[in-house]
Design a protein around this nucleic acid. Structure first.
Lengths: 346, 346
DNA sequence: TTGAAAGCGCTACCAT
DNA sequence: ATGGTAGCGCTTTCAA
């Protein structure tokens, strides 16, 4: 009688009348084993419902193999509820699974939870880590370096240059927004910034303001939000109560831009873009909805996700790979939330 | 000289001048160890940058301990980009982490990828699995039962009654929608159904139609969508081209309802709810946006997420726990996308 | 091509 | 309270 436990390689070996080593070989692609033996093993395994134990497997291969020690990649995300990040995680997931890695997910409430998450991940011997929009402390960066666990940060800046980063060109995106607004000859130009502690939003604002200045325009007013719909909605109320009223707002995220749009329409009865031009950043699905038609800077998420995986994989495969910083160009998507000059309309 | 590998418990033991067993005990809460010894060990560990290897740990405890064999829980999700599911995953994540479990995430493209995902998960010796909105085949269900891996399906029906399920009462939700529409005395009542192969949407429609009949109303027309914004948008075009035009639409998801709303406004110039009442299902964040104000049935996501975790944990802790079916009541959230009768206005 | 045996890092038992 | 030791399931030498 079989014990009440899942079958292991010895059970299969016995059933197939071969050694345990043979079973191991049968399940390891590219190892030397006779075809007949392999078939015998696979047949017995199927009958017993045997599956190799990935945990045990990773324990024994940890010693020799450089890659796929555990086959696990840690993914840390702070705002999974934001469609933008959900989409990235999905992209990463597909891409990693394709290459045989599993995702150990950490969805944390706030930036302060990132550090502990990383420590837990390393206990699980993850072969690599991808951090989405999170502040990694120097301490953790050092910790990962000690463990020689490659890390890639997504849409983030890491002061420590030894860590690879994949991100969109936020500065250039800000400049594009400025051009669209100046082209449309707006007078009272406002900005709703993102979280001040994060470089992402700071760069968007920097590019925006610098380009305004270059084109001879000036920023009329700025407000600060936290990338959420509600913060955009509220900031816009403050802006639109000003005299004179702003006639263009560049928001550091689409969600804030949508908040701005809803506030302008429902609270102030404004028409967009006739009374007010609104520009966002990210190009989330809702930006393209017919009633929104938000002009925004689109990020090549899939491309960036694949680049992140590719970078991580090559660092996992070859620990000597130097860290790299990859910057992707965003694309200005002109929709009808912004007035366009003649040139843009053509 | 230390080898170029992370320190293990023997390294720490040597550094602390104790046995390896002592190191193990120092890192296992509640085991018998002298305070002084523990401190010595922790100090040495900190100096060496030692962390227990969770993989190895799970290998040795697999033998004896019933719970936390691997400390891993598999989560399979088909539509992570849908905010509704992203929110569930986030809730599950927090709740599982709190209890010391890690999430092995499988974000798959479609239902057909669920089966292979489950097989991969079991190789990682997950202690349990939560399946979100996915069809589990009988084969996989049987596979998990053989492995005695508990499974909880979220917002799904499983024909196999041995598998626990947590879901909202879709049938009752459909009835609520019918009541709101009949109360407002609508004449031409339409429905945009969800994917026909899934019980979720079928039940919503069933409850809706049955309640209409009970109230002496009839369904004027129905269309079928796939829960996405676009499918709602398109189905609504077909509906609103009818003569006479429907004056109320109940949609099987908020995304489809928002698609309906945008189509009605931008393509037909209709006012909501004056010309058309729209009701959704789920209560996603965008439903509450000022320009949408979508009447919908809200699902108690956090409660349901916690229930799913609680159910899974108790089945992991005690394999004898019988499977349970938990049905949560949805809540009608009246906003201004629906005409309300006097009673509802009070 | 195959089988025997060592060992991955840890926990849990058994003595002491 | 502590240390020694068996063994979790597998991969990988090493011999045959």
């Amino acid at each position: 009688m079989l014990a009440n436990r899942p079958p292991n390689s010895y059970d299969v070996a016995q059933a197939a009348g071969v050694s345990q080593s043979a079973v191991s070989r049968a399940f390891s692609p590219g190892r030397s084993i006779a075809k007949a033996t392999k078939e015998k093993v696979l047949k017995a395994a199927a009958e017993l419902g045997y599956q190799p134990n990935a945990i045990a497997r990773s324990m024994s291969s940890a010693r020799t193999k450089a890659v796929q020690k555990s086959g696990l990649v840690g993914v840390v995300v702070t705002q999974l509820e934001n469609q933008f990040f959900a989409k990235i995680v999905h992209t990463l997931s597909l891409s990693l699974q394709e290459q045989g890695w599993q995702i150990l997910l950490f969805s944390v409430e706030s930036e302060v939870d990132v550090d502990p998450a990383l420590f837990e991940l390393t206990q699980y011997q993850v072969d690599g880590v991808i951090v989405l929009s999170a502040l990694m402390s120097q301490k953790v960066a050092q910790h990962c370096r000690n463990l020689s666990t490659p890390v890639v940060v997504f849409n983030r800046y890491i002061k420590d240059l030894d860590i690879s980063a994949v991100r969109v060109d936020n500065y250039a995106g800000g400049r594009m927004a400025a051009d669209v607004i100046v082209d449309a000859k707006h007078q009272y130009i406002a900005h709703i910034a993102g979280i001040q502690e994060e470089q992402t939003g700071v760069d968007r604002e920097l590019g925006f303001c610098e380009r305004l200045r270059e084109r001879g325009a000036t920023l009329y007013q700025r407000e600060v939000g936290d990338y959420t719909f509600d913060s955009g909605y509220e900031a816009t109320q403050r802006l639109l109560n000003m005299q004179p009223r702003p006639d263009a707002i560049f928001c550091a995220s689409d969600l804030m831009a949508l908040g701005a749009m809803h506030a302008a329409r429902t609270l102030f009865g404004l028409s967009i873009p006739t009374d007010l031009t609104i520009i966002g950043f990210d190009d989330v699905p809702a930006a393209a909805w017919p009633g929104h038609q938000l002009t925004t800077i689109s990020q090549p998420i899939e491309e960036m996700g694949q680049a992140a995986v590719k970078t991580l994989v090559s660092e996992m495969e070859n620990p000597e790979t130097p860290a790299s910083q990859q910057v992707f160009a965003g694309k200005m998507v002109l929709r009808s939330s912004s007035l366009s000059d003649l040139y843009a309309q053509i």
